[in-house]
Amino acid sequence: MLARVGDQMERMGRATAAGMAEFGLGAVLLAQCIYWVAVGHRRAQPVRLDAAFARCMEVGILAIPIVTLMALTIGIMLAIQGIYSLRVFGAEEQVVLGVGMSVVREFGPLITGILVAGRTGSSLAARIGTMRISQEIDALSVMGINPVRFIVAPALIAMMIMVPTLTFWSSIVMLAGSGWYISVDLGMSWAAYIERLTEIIKFGDVLHGLGKSLLFGVLITLVGVINGTLVSGGAEGVGKMTTRSVVISICAIIVTDMVFAFIATRS
């Protein structure tokens, strides 16, 4: 009995150690990216902006349709729920308050983060995993091309630009979706709706949402890259780590979001 408990403790300990190691790996990776962006030029190994822009295209522009669709749907859903629950108090008009705050601070960053994690985080993990097993990463190293500089840094830059941008866009679309439902259901005019929003939403709220989404972008990139580099054993290994990357980055996003919300509402 005791032995089994000990066994389990040991297994948990080992899993924790492995988790911590990955955490450390993420920190090292981030530091290396910053290093290459800062001194790459001096070492004749610049981080290529054209590569970063190409990634921006893939991370951001190609994600616009799905992000827009999801944001619109969720915006409408928020309005429906808000009106339904506020009707209990006869305070339907206050729905704008709830929607405005929660979209800009929570739903915009969160939904965008989750979508990007599913779309880009997974493809990043798959791409790097495939490059690893096909020895493309090795080939880069032996050519004297640092893989972090060549692959990871441009991806990170693209994510740090595009995730906040997408978040900004999706927040606007969500608010438009809510506004549409509210105007239909409550007969509130668009002008009144927008005026209410501008009263409610402070610049700080927007900053809060965008700051968070920047962090999500970094998290998704690091989780995707690390899982990609941990791939072993062919195609199946790539599939496994891709799944793992999506699960971990979504968890990381939600936990970070909770911590953010806690800290922000305290101060």
Partner: peptide, 22 residues
């Protein structure tokens, strides 16, 4: 690292599977 990068420019490697960038 800097010297190794220089050294690596003087060596070429053809990997078994090619390792061409897809």
């Amino acid at each position: 690292d800097v010297e190794r990068t220089k050294l690596r420019q003087k060596m070429g490697v053809a990997f078994q599977g090619g390792a061409l960038f897809s």
